[in-house]
């Protein structure tokens, strides 16, 4: 009986070397401390192919609209409820104008989502929060304070029928 491991076939041995190389190659592309990439002993053409794929095969992200619509659907499923009778159909807000870090596919046709009940987009919540903050926050400038005082005066003044 032998305690030695069975010898690997040449194809497996080579594949193991390639695998080790890919491990260090992909780690070198990742942020953070870099590993030492040893000079590999396998074919330079395969090495060049690995380097090309590691640098050029990008990860795609779905459109913002799709991601949010699916998040909404998952929330509804998780909450065990769909849109209520008081729900209204509305277009999802346009995506932000910032340039995404990775190439994004073109947006597909505009989809509609349900707003109402438990369903709301991150945009609409952020908009409501911003508006509430703007109303509640004390004005920073003298002009702002004057404008608000004038507005309060107009609102509280008795209405005169003409």
């Amino acid at each position: 009986m032998s305690f030695l491991r069975p010898a690997r076939r040449p194809a497996e041995e080579e594949a193991m070397q390639v695998d080790l190389y890919l491990e260090t190659l992909l780690a070198a592309h990742a942020p953070g401390p870099r590993g030492i990439v040893d000079e590999p002993t396998f074919d330079p053409g395969e090495r060049a192919a690995a380097q090309l794929l590691a640098s050029r095969l990008v990860r795609f992200h779905p459109s913002f609209r799709f991601e949010e619509a699916l998040a909404t659907r998952l929330r509804a499923v998780a909450g065990g409820r769909g849109g209520g009778a008081d729900a209204t159909v509305t277009d999802f807000p346009a995506p932000p104008t910032g340039v995404p870090a990775t190439p994004r596919p073109a947006f597909r046709d505009r989809r509609s989502i349900l707003i109402g009940g438990a369903i709301a987009s991150g945009f609409s919540l952020a908009g409501v929060a911003l508006f509430a903050w703007r109303v509640a926050a004390p004005p920073r400038t003298p002009f702002g304070r004057a404008a608000r005082a004038a507005h309060r005066g107009r609102v509280s003044a008795p209405k005169v029928r003409t």
Binding site: A11, E12, A15, V18, D43, G45, E46, A48, A49, L53
Partner: peptide, 20 residues
């Protein structure tokens, strides 16, 4: 795991040939 390593190696070899 061994089969996957071989699969990836063969794929890489095909890509290298294609690039050539």
């Amino acid at each position: 795991e061994g089969a996957v390593r071989v699969l990836i190696h063969r794929a890489l070899r095909s890509v290298a040939a294609e690039l050539g």
